[in-house]
Computed example of a mutant assay.
Amino acid sequence: MTGARPSRRLVLAGLATGFAAGAQAAAPAPVAVGSKLDLESALLGAMVLLALREAGVPVIDRLRLGPTSLVRQALLAGAIDVCVEYTGNAATFFQQEGDPVWRDAAKGYERAAALDLARNGLVWLSPAPADNSWIIAVPRAPARRHGLTSLADFARRVAAGGRARLAASAEFVESPAGLPAFEAAYGFRLGADQLLVLSGGETIATMKAAADAISGVDAAMAYRTDGALDALGLVALEDPLRSQPVYAPAPVLRAATLEAWPAARAALAPLFAGLDVETLRALNARVAVDGEDPAAVARGHMARRGAP
């Protein structure tokens, strides 16, 4: 004796359930957005989150995950799908620190993009027209008084015996890409008595030391996009010999993520195209100087540039 025949309604309901389950299984996973701990990275990460969300891409917030090394490993391992990285860091990732290509914005970006795609399946989208490389900054008044606009001017003053004491981190003083690169390019040398090495080396501390002449400091290690430069009355000395790699921020995604969510490219391209040095400094100042939340600053910036 055969069993009861299922009704047409039950068959259709079962098919619908099966199709729905299949569609759900085929849906791409949400995009995990990570960032580093520093304020600028948190700000840029928040912008990436907002831009993707507005483009209809579901996102997971994994901002302020850790330092560069941890975020890089998370991206390689697939624990995050996208982060903002700086082109100059690729020189370290691929052990090419001595190659002059990293001092050229366009060529450095092209090298980073090619290497990461070929070796790691990572896609570098177009970078911002900004450079967050190390700089030396001096207070505005003495800069005017002594005609200091570039590192060449600073080097001449040091060589002539002019007063100079630099506040910096140990990393900046010891890294070949930091102070030694400036000294080699411009032919000056700061002695131990001309350095105030601050533990931790946060640039807000080094800049504050120079602005307030703490312990005789009259120059500071900083970053080109630091938001506190203008607020503290400091001048970023230009580096005409391009002794530093270019550190242009760019979104870096797993290739599989971009394939699953192609709208990400169009969502992020105009955002980063508008982030020049002046814009980043102004946004960073709201976070570092005014104490605003990076996510709130990101929302305000996105709203002003016409995001829905």
Rank of each mutant, 00 (worst) to 15 (best):
V33F: 11
V33M: 13
V33G: 13
G34P: 08
G34H: 06
G34Q: 03
G34K: 04
S35N: 08
S35A: 10
K36L: 06
K36V: 01
L37R: 08
L37S: 04
L37E: 01
D38N: 14
D38Y: 03
D38W: 10
D38G: 08
D38I: 08
D38C: 04
L39G: 04
L39R: 09
E40V: 08
E40Y: 00
E40L: 02
E40T: 14
E40A: 10
E40F: 05
S41K: 00
S41F: 00
A42S: 08
A42T: 05
A42M: 02
L43Q: 00
L43I: 03
L43C: 12
L43M: 01
L44A: 11
L44M: 10
L44K: 03
G45Q: 08
A46M: 07
A46C: 11
A46I: 09
A46S: 15
M47R: 09
M47D: 10
M47S: 09
V48M: 04
V48C: 03
V48N: 02
V48I: 07
V48D: 06
L49P: 02
L49R: 12
L49G: 12
L49M: 15
L50S: 04
L50T: 14
L50Q: 14
L50Y: 07
L50D: 15
A51E: 13
A51M: 13
A51W: 12
L52G: 14
L52Q: 14
L52W: 05
L52Y: 13
L52V: 14
R53A: 15
R53P: 00
R53D: 15
R53I: 00
E54R: 07
E54T: 13
E54I: 06
A55S: 11
A55W: 11
A55I: 03
A55K: 04
A55M: 11
A55V: 01
A55G: 09
G56H: 02
G56Q: 07
G56L: 09
G56S: 03
G56M: 08
G56F: 09
V57S: 11
V57L: 04
V57E: 11
V57Q: 12
V57A: 07
V57K: 09
V57Y: 11
P58M: 06
P58L: 09
V59D: 00
V59L: 08
V59W: 05
V59P: 10
I60T: 13
I60R: 10
I60M: 03
I60F: 04
D61Y: 02
D61E: 12
R62T: 05
R62F: 11
R62Q: 07
L63Q: 02
L63N: 02
L63H: 00
L63P: 05
R64G: 01
R64F: 00
